[in-house]
Design a protein around this nucleic acid. Structure first.
Lengths: 181, 181
DNA sequence: ACCTGAACACCGTTCAAGT
DNA sequence: ACCTGAACACCGTTCAAGT
């Protein structure tokens, strides 16, 4: 029999996420992750073929959590309420995982396309029911663009001209929802 | 007298931008930039204290170009037209400099805050004239959030559900402008 | 003054050798 | 089967030595 495993895929992802939020993406070195889980760097390659794949796995995990948050926001027959709850949960998710949220949009898309599409599923569902298949797509793109752009700027501290960021979020969301519904 | 300068700040920035668009931010290594301008890596440190500062200089240059593009979109007394031209120029700028555009929002903000604020100046001007000081700020944040989010997703190829991306852009922009003006 | 080779500490990654 | 030290090619950065 061989040596006992000292760690696991899930523990490695968790360590990588901890380092990501603490020290940014640059802080997620293979050596640092390895130390985080009590192993040497080369051992990580038994489970993840490269640093890029480890980061992709983290991205996939985050997208799964985002999708769950979006699903919880949906209530049958309450289009506007569902969209408002989605927006609030989306923002809360990004604030809980600021570096992780940035990672989702940093890493070359292509991969994870399945998880990406799945995470927008609930939104597409609500909009398709409310607006029909045809109008749902541009509506979803408008809403997601606003949410993503707003969160990126908020998390990076780019709202520096004073005023209430909270109010701007409510105002922007209401403006778009008024236009859509 | 000392050795003749083989390069310049501007040439180094240009080399960095070429590498950035060709091979991504990872491709902008000090050695690669040095080779691009016909010098060895240590020489770059005479002009830029670090790779981070070089990238910051590139960011500043890009922000200046973006600001100029925004200024050209403004016509007195044409709020909606000015905003539509701004949106079109913003998108064109991002498509001309896809990696550079991403860099602007990748690099830890803090620095370049002056250039950042300046680049939003024309937009704030138009909106302040049209809506008054109070309402201009959340309006600007809504519009910029939409533009940034949309471009990020478009450039990263995240609009994968078919349909016309062009139409979605027009639709989203019109929806927001209808709500603002 | 600017340029350079050599050196340092750090990466990601591979691999042969251990148990 | 998993873990490890050693090694490789590459980073960013510093610095003494060249002209």
């Amino acid at each position: 029999m061989g040596a006992a495993a000292k760690t696991s895929d899930a523990e490695i992802r968790a360590g990588a996420r901890r380092l990501l939020e603490l020290h940014g993406a640059d802080g997620v070195s293979m050596a640092a992750v390895a130390e985080e889980v009590g192993v040497r760097a080369p051992s990580l390659y038994k489970r993840f073929a490269s640093r890029a794949e480890l980061l992709r796995a983290v991205t996939g995990e985050l997208l799964g959590e985002l999708q769950m948050a979006m699903e919880k926001a949906v209530r049958e027959g309450e289009a506007r309420g569902s969209l408002e709850r989605m927006a609030a949960r989306y923002r809360a998710f990004a604030k809980r995982n600021p570096r992780g949220y940035a990672l989702i949009f940093t890493y070359d898309a292509e991969a994870d396309m399945g998880a990406r599409l799945a995470s927008v599923g609930p939104l597409m569902g609500v909009l398709t029911t409310a607006l029909g298949r045809e109008r749902a797509l541009p509506a979803a793109r408008t809403l997601v663009a606003f949410l993503h752009g707003f969160l990126t700027m908020e998390l990076q501290g780019l709202f520096q001209m004073g005023g209430s960021v909270e109010e701007a979020f409510r105002f922007g969301l209401a403006t778009i929802l008024d236009g859509l519904l």
